[in-house]
Nucleic acid binder design. Structure first.
Length: 428
DNA sequence: AAGCATGATTAAGG
DNA sequence: CCTTAATCATGCTT
């Protein structure tokens, strides 16, 4: 429409030069009395049709008008109608229904599942959650990566929607345009509503194939984003120091049974701002690595044991005020434990042997026991290596490597080499 | 760059 | 589904 002037301008001269006087000839309507004349007339018309593309628009318009006014027109129209009647059946038979495209359905489903084509705002976060669930295990991850992912997804979503809208609009425009054309043409040639319908169908199909491309590329983009997101998850980042501290604290204060319950995991996860599955991972790794090389973790164990022991004792002595993570005087308390480590060890043993199976109170006691034992082992390590090794070996880990069904600590194993060979690496 | 530390993943077992 | 044990892949330190 916009380029009408351009078209007119460019082809004006050609049209006029190419067919001088044709219109005038038409309008004159030469004598229809004899067959010769009629034949020639039709020949002219055909010629005109064949060369119609060479004409400029206004010229064509004029011609069209002339044609409409031509006295032969109704007859010609009728003939065309007859021909049409005969052919329309075959046309209709050729193009009927189309099976719902499986590919398109897949794409639609995926886009819906990704939240790209779903409802407005909730879609993005839902997709992120879905991705998280697919990636990890469950639970909502609360991190920057997520928001990043979500932002990118919504960006994709936005592009998708604007493009889709554009296509839809273009499709509608084109359809109405074609329909107008057809309607106009229906004055000159027979066009049934069915035909228009069919045309519209064709247009829609064409556009929907374009839309499918859009959907496909959107899907691809989402997949890429997602895989990158998953890679980013796989690409580990160390937990921050505080989180590690909390986890270690729990681990070493539950050393005889370092299997946090679901609730405990949740709480740890919350405290460390990581997911529950990350907590599980951490404990899994920690257990296995600790068990594999207890000696290596000795120092760490002592540290955390002393720390929690200090807080624990401060709790038990001072009653309520407890949770200052910065333990006041870990060294001092360790020193004081050093004095009567033997007694404590005895009591620890008896406690450990009797009371920790199952009950919550037992577990509580047990954690204290663990803590104390660590402190003892630490002090023992400093004073006498043999005691330390004896104390250390029965950490609930039996010879088989089991943690739960550890035998009573009194059955101290330890041919010199056990995990208890502390003296060598405490200096490290 | 090498080597260790560490979070995540996977296979196997219960 | 949870655990262990092995392994991967990366981060950090040396």
């Amino acid at each position: 429409m916009d380029d009408q002037p351009r078209l007119m301008h460019s082809s004006h001269g050609v049209g006029m030069a190419g067919h001088p006087g044709l219109a005038q000839h038409m309008q004159d309507g030469t004598g229809g009395a004899d067959g010769e004349g009629r034949k020639q007339d039709i020949g002219d018309i055909l010629q005109q049709i064949m060369t119609i593309t060479d004409q400029s628009l206004d010229e064509a318009q004029a011609r069209k008008h002339a044609l409409n006014c031509h006295r032969m027109k109704p007859a010609l129209f009728n003939v065309l109608c007859e021909i049409k009647e005969k052919t329309v059946l075959s046309i209709r038979g050729a193009q009927e229904e189309e099976p719902p495209d499986a590919q398109l359905m897949r794409l639609d489903n995926m886009l819906l599942a990704e939240g790209v084509s779903g409802p407005e705002k909730g879609g993005g976060s839902a997709a992120a959650a879905a991705a998280a669930a697919a990636a990890g295990g469950g639970g909502s991850d609360n991190s920057a990566e997520h928001s990043d992912y979500r932002a990118k997804l919504s960006q994709i979503r936005q592009i998708y929607h604007t493009e889709l809208e554009k296509y839809e609009q273009a499709c509608n425009e084109f359809t109405t345009h074609v329909m107008n054309l057809l309607r106009e043409q229906s004055r000159t040639r027979p066009i049934s509503p069915k035909e228009i319908e069919r045309m519209v169908g064709i247009i829609h199909r064409k556009f929907s194939s374009i839309q499918m491309q859009l959907k496909q590329s959107t899907c691809e983009a989402v997949m890429i984003l997602r895989s990158r997101f998953l890679d980013a998850r796989r690409k580990r980042r160390n937990f921050n120091k505080q989180a590690t501290e909390i986890l270690n604290e729990y681990f070493y204060s539950h050393l005889s049974n370092p299997y946090p319950s679901e609730e405990a995991k949740e709480e740890l996860a919350k405290k460390c701002s990581i997911t529950v599955s990350q907590v599980s991972n951490w404990f899994g790794n920690k257990r296995i690595r600790y068990k594999k090389n207890i000696g290596k973790f000795q120092e760490e164990a002592n540290m955390y044991a002393a720390k929690t022991a200090a807080t624990a004792t401060s709790v038990s002595t001072h009653g309520s005020q407890a949770n200052s993570p910065s333990t006041p005087n870990s060294a001092g308390s360790a020193g004081s434990f050093n004095m009567n480590s033997g007694d404590l060890f005895m009591s620890v043993q008896s406690l450990n042997g009797d009371s920790y199976q199952g009950a919550q109170v037992g577990a509580n006691v047990q954690s204290q026991v663990d803590t104390l034992r660590h402190v003892i082992s630490q002090t023992g390590g400093y004073s006498e290596s043999l005691a330390a090794s004896q104390i250390y070996s029965p950490q609930g880990i039996n010879a088989n490597g089991g943690w739960q069904d550890a035998p009573t600590p009194s059955s101290v194993t330890s041919p010199t080499e056990g995990p208890g060979s502390v003296h060598s690496d405490t200096s490290n």
